[in-house]
């Protein structure tokens, strides 16, 4: 429905991350060290996760407020709205996976067997989006300023997550932020898997713990306010 009003309609699902990739690729492949010929793949895998995260959490954030017409008319299980945000992300994912594999022949990249672990990373991403959607959907009704704040935070996440820089290039500040940035952890896991590396069990556990904590906190918060949130719309 988001793209229903535009001329190119759902093509934008794929065009958004693709244009973001082209812009960042043109800029960073010229100003940075020619790190490796796989920079394009490194960049697109990071962008896809970042793009899904931003779309998913933004859909989650507005999910209760944008559906107030329905909520004021139907005694409906409100839980479905954050879940719809995750389902939407999963649908976007199918298109973006196509872009990921579509770029490979152009940069002569041969996918590694370790890619079979990617569904685990995707589950972590969807869990993170769901947890944040629970939290943000309620907060946005109570505090409308959350939307611009979240937009700024997502903009910051683009720079502090390992999307166009790698961990071995990061300074202490970026490394410290990376330690507490669940999206950054997820993107780093995806990079390792894409480049034929098996992440350590500690890396998996740490990311899973962060995502679980956000999911539990978000769910508890949502449950606490879901009964009365319609009265505040």
């Amino acid at each position: 429905m988001r793209y229903k009003e535009s001329f190119l309609s759902f093509l934008w699902i794929g065009l958004e991350p693709l244009f973001m990739f082209i812009i960042l690729y043109v800029v960073f492949s010229n100003i940075r060290e020619p790190r490796e010929e796989n920079f394009a793949i490194y960049l697109i895998s990071g962008i896809i996760f970042y793009h899904l995260f931003t779309k998913g959490t933004m859909t989650g954030l507005t999910s209760i407020k944008n559906n107030q017409g329905i909520l004021k008319s139907l005694a409906i299980n409100k839980n479905i709205f954050p879940i719809i945000a995750v389902t939407t992300t999963a649908l976007l994912l199918t298109v973006e996976v196509g872009i990921f594999f579509g770029i490979m022949p152009f940069v002569s990249f041969i996918p590694s067997w370790t890619l079979i672990m990617m569904p685990l990373v995707i589950i972590l991403l969807l869990g993170l989006i769901l947890g944040l959607s629970y939290l943000l959907s309620i907060l946005y009704v109570k505090i409308p300023d959350i939307q611009p704040i979240w937009t700024i935070l997502m903009y910051a996440l683009l720079f502090v997550s390992p999307i166009f820089w790698s961990i071995d290039q990061a300074n202490d500040i970026l490394l410290t932020i990376q330690q507490i940035n669940p999206l950054g952890q997820i993107i780093e896991l995806s990079h390792k898997i894409v480049f034929n590396e098996i992440p350590d069990i500690e890396e998996w556990l740490k990311t899973a713990l962060m995502v679980s904590a956000i999911l539990v906190i978000g769910y508890i918060f949502f449950k606490k306010f879901e009964k009365t949130i319609v009265e505040e719309l």
Partner: peptide
């Protein structure tokens, strides 16, 4: 119970 029917609500 049917939902509360209001003008264009939910459309």
């Amino acid at each position: 119970l049917a939902p509360v029917l209001q003008i264009g609500i939910g459309f």
